[in-house]
């Protein structure tokens, strides 16, 4: 292993990094699927540069609209992107080990845990950080969308937000709607190109 430097990690070095990154992220993912998406974006896009922001948005859309836990789905996509099929195995293993161990332990004294005031206070505070983290990710990604100066996309973003937040429409339907919008847009563009 002479070549194992920081700048160009070997394949096994990359897998090891992937394993510990997913393990670490999963151990701190309190709350729903978007929390892990935010943490993955910060780790794999901003810090390690293994995935770009656009791909991270695509991963979010695919993970959200596929069956199963969003965290597991996102781990599969990130693993496949960074290290192929071994990457899938490694990323999924890293993601499920923390809940597997923690829940196994907690299941033996769950009433004491669920009623503990200190745990509740700590988690409440952590939620403040979680909200800030997600909003920070939204700022980065939102600015990226608006920077393209594509009015239709900005309109679509506002419309999707209203549909999700105010109208409480199922997220899978919103993603499907956006996909249909993309198809229609493509067809209109093709027709224009065909005429000219």
């Amino acid at each position: 292993m002479k070549n194992n430097t920081n700048k160009s990690p070997t394949k096994s070095g990359k897998l090891l990094k992937l394993f510990f990154s997913t393990l670490y992220i999963s151990a701190f993912t309190f709350g729903g699927g978007f929390v892990i998406i935010g943490l993955m974006k910060k780790k794999f896009a901003d810090e390690l540069h293994w995935i770009d922001e656009e791909e991270m948005m695509d991963i979010t859309a695919i993970a959200q609209s596929s069956p199963g836990a969003i965290a597991v789905n996102a781990a599969i996509l990130v693993g496949r992107k960074t290290a192929g099929i071994p990457g899938i195995a490694i990323a999924v293993t890293g993601t499920i080990i923390p809940p597997l161990i923690i829940l196994s332990v907690v299941s033996f004294f769950y009433s004491a845990f669920a009623g503990n005031r200190y745990v509740a206070l700590f988690l409440k505070g952590m939620q403040a950080g979680v909200a800030a983290m997600i909003l920070d990710v939204v700022c980065s990604l939102g600015l990226k969308v608006t920077a393209e100066r594509d009015l239709l996309n900005i309109f679509l973003m506002i419309l999707s937000f209203a549909a999700a937040y105010f109208l409480k429409i199922n997220v899978v339907l919103i993603i499907l709607g956006a996909a249909v919008f993309g198809i229609v847009r493509y067809l209109v563009k093709e027709k224009k190109n065909g005429l000219s």
Partner: peptide
Amino acid sequence: SVLGSLRPATVALIASAGLSILLI
């Protein structure tokens, strides 16, 4: 084209989840 339309929707969904947590 489809992915290009999914991205703004995805950002909106993350924003909606973040705002809900913030309000809690």
